[in-house]
Simulated scan of single mutants.
Amino acid sequence: MNAEFMQAFEQLGKEKGIAPEILFDAIEAALISAYKRNFGSAQNVMVSLDRLTGEIHVYARKNVVEEVTDSRLEMSLAEAKSIDPRYGLEDIIEVEVTPKDFGRIAAQTAKQVVVQRIREAERGIIYEEFSNRESDILTGIVQRMEQKNVFIDLGKAEAILAPSEQIAGETYRHGDRLKTYIIEVKKTTKGPQILVSRTHPGLLKRLFELEVPEIHDGVVEIKSVAREPGLRSKIAVHSRDENVDPVGSCVGHKGMRVQTIVNELKGEKIDIVKWSVDPAKYISNALSPAKVVSVEVNEAEKISKVIVPDYQLSLAIGKEGQNARLAAKLTGWKIDIKSESQAQSAI
Rank of each mutant, 00 (worst) to 15 (best):
E94W: 10
E96Q: 14
E96G: 06
E96V: 05
V97I: 11
P99N: 10
P99R: 13
F102D: 03
F102C: 01
G103A: 11
R104N: 01
R104I: 07
I105K: 15
A106C: 04
A106F: 06
A107N: 08
Q108G: 02
Q108K: 04
A110T: 02
K111V: 14
Q112H: 14
Q112M: 08
Q112S: 13
V113H: 11
V113C: 01
Q116C: 01
R117G: 09
I118T: 08
R119W: 06
E120S: 13
E120H: 12
A121H: 12
A121T: 13
A121F: 09
E122W: 04
E122G: 03
G124E: 15
I126E: 05
F130M: 07
F130A: 08
S131M: 05
S131I: 13
R133Q: 15
R133V: 02
R133A: 07
E134C: 09
D136F: 14
D136T: 15
I137A: 10
G140C: 03
I141P: 07
V142S: 05
V142W: 06
Q143F: 02
R144V: 00
M145G: 01
E146H: 06
E146W: 01
Q147V: 12
K148F: 10
N149Q: 07
V150C: 00
V150L: 00
V150H: 02
D153R: 02
K156H: 12
A157M: 04
I160W: 12
I160P: 07
I160K: 06
I160T: 15
A162K: 15
A162E: 13
A162I: 11
P163W: 06
S164V: 12
Q166M: 02
I167W: 04
I167N: 14
A168N: 14
A168Y: 05
A168V: 12
G169S: 08
E170G: 07
T171H: 08
Y172K: 04
R173T: 05
H174V: 05
D176T: 00
D176Y: 01
L178P: 01
K179F: 01
T180V: 15
I183N: 04
K187T: 04
K187S: 07
T188H: 11
T189H: 06
G191P: 02
P192T: 11
Q193C: 03
Q193G: 06
I194P: 10
L195S: 09
S197V: 10
R198P: 00
R198T: 02
T199E: 06
T199M: 04
T199R: 11
H200P: 09
P201S: 15
P201F: 09
L203S: 11
L204E: 11
K205T: 01
